[in-house]
Write a protein that binds this DNA or RNA. Structure first.
Lengths: 239, 239
DNA sequence: TAGTGGTCTAGACCACACT
DNA sequence: GTGTGGTCTAGACCACTAT
């Protein structure tokens, strides 16, 4: 018997082979159910998932249409620094450089959505792969959102690992960019001044309160992010 | 009546509020169906989608368990350069710098999975936002995979737009990194030698044949990628 | 108004993996 | 062996929207 997965694959093949051209309507559920000899609900599930993946658009009465241009999404795994280093077979080490409770700078206040001058926690630290510096971390924590951070000294458990445990479900915004290393960054990363660095900037919040804002800086010559984006539900050979 | 979306949200709230703690089993479908007064299939659909989003793991006989640590995925929209520039309200312009059919270099042959010295198409071009250089493009096309490229001069339609039309459904691998601008890159992007650039590298293939390998270089001080990652199916305020 | 997708149900049977 | 999730069905009714 044909399962919804079979149907999902057949439909995807008809799309990717241009048997059903971009921009055109495909047969309706009733017709496909008869063709495949299954209930309409089975066809519905198959095509529903294809629509979720963005290859077709469905509208009541109008029918289901192959989406014209496939704008490509990449799913990037934001690395968890300890895991990333250990997966490389290197020894992970973390070093706290500074931990202060100080008035927020203008930039920090803007990112944390607090008033300039409000006290917040500033943390600077660094992560090593073996003996090589891997990541330099500059962080602000909004103490109004996470008051328990006051009790943490962050010498043994890094701020990220602690925050992930403390506030497991938060929204996030990431920015990736290339920059020239600041003097402090280049010193801690063992680079020359102005050398290129890859910066991941992350802001997380929950229920309207910003929790933390952090800049993670990596040596440009030793870091990259890779993502592999295959056509789902398809037999298009992936290698 | 309660819909599967209601149930999906209620279940997500129980997860994100730690009412159902990380690592623990949640009640089985039958129990939840009775609690919510719906059919088991309705509960199944709700939790299935939560499992697809990665918040729970389901195993027959073992039940459904809240996934312990939420490793964060970011969904990055790979920009389509023309759209990106036009969305900024700038005028898009494209300029072909070189188009040759030449023996593949060692690096190009490796990336295209062809023998060193096999003839392939080399394209160098550049994209402008208004009068400012925005992206410098260095591309190889595998002529064995896309023979029709020989007939294209790529003076009016850029190679990317042409390839997207010619081979709409291909698999892809993206790499993001920071680098120092090469001499050619810095000249065309109006940068100083060694200035930081953000490089997007893309390789696409279909049915085992690599189609193209391209490096897209952007001025580090004018380019970044941003991604916003909200907890789905949840009322966790997103601002 | 009519045609399409969206969803639910009650029941059934199956596949898997823990015991 | 047995309890869980995985899937299918036939029918039903609803929601939306193109015409």
């Amino acid at each position: 018997m044909r399962t919804y997965k079979d149907i999902r694959q057949i439909v995807m093949e008809r799309i990717t082979s241009n048997e059903w051209p971009m921009g055109e309507l495909i047969p309706n559920e009733q017709v496909l159910a008869e063709e495949f000899g299954v209930a309409r609900a089975t066809v519905n599930r198959a095509i529903q998932e294809i629509a979720d993946a963005g290859f077709v658009e469905r509208r009541r009465k109008a029918g289901t249409r192959v989406v014209p241009r496939r704008s490509r999404d990449a799913i990037v795994q934001i690395p968890v620094v300890r895991e990333q280093i250990e997966n490389m077979g290197e020894n992970y080490r973390f070093a706290l450089i500074a931990r202060h409770i100080v008035p927020a700078t203008k930039a920090a206040a803007r990112e944390l959505s607090i008033s300039t001058g409000t006290k917040a926690m500033r943390i600077v630290c660094q992560h090593f792969a073996g003996n090589d510096p891997w990541q330099f971390e500059e962080r602000w924590i909004n103490l109004a959102a996470v008051p328990a951070a006051r009790e943490q000294d962050f010498t043994s458990v890094g701020p990220n690992e602690w925050l992930v445990r403390e506030v497991p479900y938060s929204n996030a915004e990431h920015t990736f960019r290339a920059a020239a290393a600041s003097e402090q960054q280049s010193q801690h990363l063992g680079l020359g001044a102005g050398d290129p660095v890859f910066v991941i900037e992350r802001k997380t919040w929950r229920r309207g309160k910003t929790i933390t804002w952090v800049q993670l800086t990596h040596p440009g010559d030793r870091f990259s992010m890779i993502t592999r984006d295959d056509i789902p539900y398809s037999d298009v050979a992936s290698v």
